[in-house]
């Protein structure tokens, strides 16, 4: 499929695949730290999803450009991780500044998890996937944003469930992170049903 001309339906398939079938969190299990950390409340989860979408929407294409026009011509592929992390760190800084300027309460609610997007493996993972799947520039943009939306969807679903944990009788040993991980596994299992969508 990679070398042919892509039609609209191919892009739709790419988006559906990134959000449902190969969900970055629930099928690839990348980015679990913010997944468990910011999913206790719906509003924080939603803000985190927006922040990740913005960061990934920017860093995905930029890392692709860096790969294509700097690293490959100069044969520096061994610097890939370093260059990508640098790009991600810079954009996280940028998002932090913008959020701080625009919304102080949101800035405080995201707290430590905002700088942690820097080391969010969902972000770095998507950047690597763009390269590995040999996407062109447009496909990279679409896949990056769709992948981040998949991350956001999983985060919001998780927050919806975890908000109800307050009123659930959870055995003491399973409380908090343990039940969070079990829930994540069960959501992941149910997302496996989407595998049937792909031929």
């Amino acid at each position: 499929m990679h070398h042919e001309v892509w039609h609209f339906s191919d892009y739709v398939m790419l988006v559906v695949s990134a959000i449902f079938i190969n969900n970055i969190l629930l099928a690839r299990f990348l980015g679990n730290c913010p997944f468990l950390g910011t999913s206790k409340r719906m509003d924080t989860a939603f803000s985190m999803a927006c922040a990740v979408t913005f960061v990934l929407g920017c860093t995905g294409p930029i890392t692709w450009l860096i790969e294509k026009y700097l690293l490959i011509p100069y044969d520096l592929l061994y610097l890939e991780t370093l260059a990508f992390i640098l790009t991600i760190a810079v954009f996280v800084q940028l998002v932090e500044m913008v959020i701080r300027k625009i919304s102080q309460p949101l800035y405080r609610a995201l707290g430590i998890y905002l700088p942690l997007i820097t080391t969010n493996c969902a972000v770095l993972g998507t950047c690597f996937l763009n390269i590995k799947e040999k996407f062109n520039f447009i496909q990279t943009i679409v896949f990056s944003v769709a992948s981040a939306m998949g991350f956001g969807l999983a985060l919001v679903i998780m927050a919806g469930i975890r908000e109800r944990f307050n009123f659930a009788r959870i055995p003491k040993n399973f409380q908090d992170t343990s039940i969070g991980l079990i829930t994540a596994g069960l959501i992941g299992l149910s997302f496996f049903a989407f595998q049937g969508l792909a031929k």
């Binding site: 520096l76 370093l82 260059a83 640098l86 790009t87 800084q93 913008v98």
Partner: peptide, 19 residues
């Protein structure tokens, strides 16, 4: 490698400085 990484870092530094 030094030029590429240094150049990238310089560009990002200016961008963050402005921001």
């Amino acid at each position: 490698p030094v030029l590429v990484m240094g150049g990238l870092a310089a560009v990002f530094a200016v961008m963050l400085g402005v921001a």
